[in-house]
Design a protein around this nucleic acid. Structure first.
Length: 206
DNA sequence: TGCCAGGCCCTCTTTAGGGCCTT
């Protein structure tokens, strides 16, 4: 099983195109089916967090005033992530901010994103919804901290991803999981999941 | 002036609309 990094951003809003900025990031390195390293930091981009987002995340403007500058944090987390494949829950959101913040420090993304929400929609269609908290409860996984804080969400997304990998291995009798297989599955219509796994079974090794 | 995300996915679809999910 190869290494992957799960990331989670907290931000001032939903869209970097509308001026929203990152306020916190966490990155969790998974190797051989276990979390082996973590990075987490608040970051100060010199912008205000709207009060409703402060209430949502528990990250206040006072906390950001004491946080390190965003350029330094993004440089550090970019080094931590290196060229490992990235995972996030609803990855289209984190990818937008990852690309926008790296662009500001003139760093280019080196890898693709895998989305745990798209995988869960395919592998856990019976879930009442596919919010992170619902899936953690459904899978019986531990709540590792406050939801909407970066490290807790990244750790829970990491545990969910490992759970989904186990589910995939069990359901299709796979000897192991390769991130390239996850990348194929997240884009495959539910009805064609079996054919997709069989087509790319050769990617999986013990 | 008023508005302001966007990618994915389902369906009463594909010349579209609307819900989900992330902060």
């Amino acid at each position: 099983m190869d290494s992957i990094v799960v990331i989670d951003f907290e931000t001032t809003g939903l869209s970097p195109n509308q001026g929203d900025r990152a306020t916190e990031i966490a990155a969790v390195l998974i190797r051989d089916g276990q979390i082996v390293d973590r990075y987490q930091s608040l970051m100060n981009a010199g912008v205000r967090i709207p009060s409703y987002v402060e209430a949502l995340t528990g990250i206040s403007n006072a906390m950001l005033r004491k946080a390190p500058p965003i350029d330094r944090v993004m440089g550090e987390v970019s080094d931590f992530v290196a060229d490992y494949p990235l995972v996030a829950h609803n990855a289209s959101f984190d990818r937008k901010f990852w690309d926008a913040e790296l662009d500001r420090i003139r760093v280019k993304r080196k890898q693709d994103f895998i989305c745990s929400m798209l995988l869960a929609r395919r592998l856990l269609p019976q879930a009442p919804n596919h919010q992170l908290g619902t899936l953690i409860a459904l899978a019986g996984l531990p709540v590792t901290g406050r939801y909407h804080r970066a490290l807790a969400d990244a750790e829970m997304t990491a545990n969910l991803t490992l759970y989904l990998e186990q589910e995939l291995m069990r359901r299709f009798s796979l000897p192991g999981i390769n991130h390239a297989l996850l990348g194929k599955i997240q884009k495959t219509p539910k009805a064609q999941l079996k054919q997709c796994v069989e087509r790319f079974r050769h990617l999986c090794v013990e």
